[in-house]
Amino acid sequence: MKNFLKYLLKRIFFMLITLWLIATVTFFLMKFLPGSPYVNQEKLSPEQIAILNKQAGLDRPVIEQYGIYLKNIVQGDFGTSFQFKNQPVAKLLVDRIGPSVQLGVQAIILGTLMGILLGVIAAMRQNTWVDTVATLVAILGRSIPNFVFAVLLQLLFAIKWQVLPIAKWDQGFISTILPTVALAMSPLADSARFIRTEMVEVLGSDYIELARAKGLSYWQVAFKHGLRNSLIPLITLLGPLAVSLMTGSLVVENIFAIPGIGEQFVKSILTNDYPTIMAVTLLFSTMLVVVILIVDILYGLVDPRIRVSGGSET
């Protein structure tokens, strides 16, 4: 337990360093970027600029500005958006986080559940046509970029058959179906592959033989004994999954015109809305390091054979 706490503190320490590094790099990059924050600088007199600078705190030494910036970030204040005048970035993002989180959670649940199912079936029917189909789905899901997939879904379900809305976020659950499926493709492919490999290994082990010998049915053995032990390593997949969902959400939200973080991020990049870019950058990085940390801790908790502190290897 003491070891665990020590490990946890160490990890959080490095997590904070990572975030601080990203915040610092972004700050100085934007500081030394050419151009000024004022749209009509030519029309302003030097006195006016001085007043504006003072208002924005730009007259202080860079180091002091940096300090204020860090203090504000810790308090969740990311300044005001350039794109939407007088709109605090924090508020802008809070309003948009709902759809993104909903989509992400739905996609992860759908993707992993379908993936697990596909993987188990493939493993149970190893080297038959079922297995081949499952492998094919996994390879296609991994290879076809999610934006191509999203457009394909749009074309088929919204334009050809007209059963689902083409875009927009105004019809409740119905409008989340297509984007969720598009996002779920890569978690599905990844977890199907993963579960299949694990299941094939687990199914060959002695305790499965024993369960079969006791007279349990084939599928009972698969789900009660096999799947449980294959699920543990799946946790490791959560980290990469979270990353792929983040990047995935950027395009998918754009294609389906969903008012989420990803869509806002792309817009702010294209319009040079620096405060927003910075805030989303930090948000994404925080999410990523937190997910990685949670995955590592969960893994140690679920499978005590793995030492949390990590030995000399890996």
Binding site: L21, T247, I269, I277, F284
Partner: peptide, 11 residues
């Protein structure tokens, strides 16, 4: 590895 590569790209 804590930095998403998209973020690096934006920077």
């Amino acid at each position: 590895s804590g930095i998403p590569n998209l973020v690096v790209m934006i920077l």
